[in-house]
Each structure stands twice: as structure tokens, then as C-alpha cells.
């Protein structure tokens, strides 16, 4: 099977280039990550991140035939040949398929990703009804792989100012939590021409999310809350 992979090692290369691999896969190679590991067993200089190999740790996000996804849950049979692999777009490349995610995590940290509740903690759990808990479904499952934010043109243009879909999904996860007491503070934090409102509902984030989450919907709900707060 043929693969074309973008390579770049700042230690030796002036600029990124594409390298072709034609490899014999084994029947046990089902996912793209299996193929990449087979390539790496032949050429150990190929650098990529990977860990859980089951789509829960979020390490092996990359651009696969033009679309962001996780290598470990992308089936080889579903891929058009030659398979073209590039690092996630819009972030600085460290080496080969490994990007510098500093900016992405900075945005995630900027939304204060933790429950804020200043009441003294009770002896038992804080009660939450199943309906209140249901509000967190589709939000808390984010694996921070960055597939969404790095497919978002608004994030490409303003990664330092626009929180991006992953960060905003997380923001809404805490806004929606019945135990959190900082909704207003959280909305203030996002009320800015860039931080929230650079989202133009292009919906790339929804299209690529490997966990089937919908950041666009969450962003819409935050915008709605802001409007309602304004009147």
C-alpha cells in the first residue's frame, strides 16, 4: 500500500518535504496506526505521537487525505490510495507528524477548565439530578486531540485570540454543570470580538470530531446565553 507522508526534521531539513512509502501490510493491520507502526519498523526516523491505540487518549491526530482524524480509529480499508498524511494544519511543526500544541492548550486553560464552587464542600457528594448530569453528555467526552481546532479557519487565523472549538466546548461543559457557580464570570471571559465571536459556524469542527461531538452546538448555546443575558 502506498503512503505519502510529510517529513520534516529541523535538525537536518531546510523545509518540509513529502516521502513515499510502499509497504506490504499484514492482515492484522486494520487501522492507519497499524500501518504507520509498520512503516516505522522499517524507517525508525518517522516521528509521530501515539499511545492508547483505541481513540481515547487523543495523541495521534493528523491530517489524513486532507481531513483531520485519529490514525488509530481510521480503518485502512476506508482510505483512498496513496494515503497522504500531514501534521495537523495551523500549528507549528516540531517534527514530521508532531505539532507544537502549546497554543491549543493555552486556549483550553484560558477558559478555566475546572468546576468553580465556593461553597464549603458537603460531607457527601454534591447532588445532581440525572437530567442535570445529562447536560454534560456530548461535552465532557472531549479528548483534546485538536482535530477540531486545527480544522477551523478562524483558529488558523487567530490561534492566539480565538479560543477555538475545543476550548469553547470545554467552556460550555463547565457552564452547563449544575455544580458550577461561575456562569457569569465564564460568559464575561468570552465576551470579546475574538474569543467567542470569531466562530462563523463553518462547522468543520463537527465534521472532523473523532468522538462525534458537536462544538458548534455548544458555541451556539454560549452565544444564546450571552444574548439572553444582554436583554
Amino acid at each position: 500500500m502506498k503512503f505519502i507522508i510529510e517529513r520534516y526534521d529541523p535538525d537536518q531539513d531546510q523545509k518540509p518535504y513529502f516521502k513515499e512509502y510502499d509497504i506490504q501490510l499484514e492482515p492484522s493491520d486494520r487501522m492507519l496506526l497499524d500501518a504507520l507502526i509498520r512503516i516505522k519498523s522499517i524507517d525508525d526516523t518517522l516521528a509521530l505521537r501515539r499511545s492508547c491505540r483505541e481513540g481515547i487518549c487523543g495523541s495521534d491526530a493528523m491530517n489524513i487525505n486532507g481531513k483531520n482524524g485519529l490514525a488509530c480509529i481510521t480503518k485502512i480499508v476506508d482510505l483512498k490510495e496513496p494515503v497522504k498524511l500531514r501534521p495537523l494544519p495551523g500549528l507549528p511543526i516540531i517534527r514530521d507528524l508532531i505539532v507544537d500544541m502549546t497554543q491549543f492548550f493555552k486556549q483550553y486553560h484560558s477558559i478555566k477548565p475546572f468546576v468553580i464552587n465556593n461553597d464549603p464542600p458537603p460531607e457527601k457528594e454534591r447532588l445532581q439530578s440525572p437530567e442535570e448530569r445529562l447536560e454534560l453528555d456530548g461535552l465532557y467526552e472531549c479528548i483534546l486531540c485538536a482535530c477540531c481546532s486545527t480544522s477551523c479557519p478562524s483558529f488558523w487565523w487567530n490561534p492566539d485570540k480565538f479560543v477555538g472549538p475545543a476550548g469553547l466546548l470545554a467552556a460550555y461543559r463547565f457552564i452547563a454543570d449544575s455544580r458550577d457557580q461561575a456562569v457569569n464570570e465564564r460568559l464575561d471571559n468570552l465576551e470579546d470580538p475574538y474569543r467567542l465571536f470569531r466562530c462563523h459556524t463553518i462547522m468543520n469542527c463537527v465534521d472532523v470530531c473523532p468522538k462525534g461531538l458537536n462544538p458548534s452546538l455548544a458555541i451556539g448555546k454560549i452565544k444564546e446565553m450571552m444574548v439572553r443575558r444582554g436583554v
Binding site: F114, V115, N117, P121, E123, K124, E125, R126, L127, Q128, S129, P130, E132, R133, L136, Y140, F174, D177, R179, D180
Partner: peptide, 18 residues
Amino acid sequence: IELEHFGMPFDRNENGTI
């Protein structure tokens, strides 16, 4: 319980407990 106070999204019973 401490983890719940940290914000862990545990599943809930009808009475609101974990």
C-alpha cells in the same frame, strides 16, 4: 466524594447521588 467535589461527571441516581 473528594473527586466528585473536584467536578468529576459521575452518573447519577434519581435522588442525585452517584
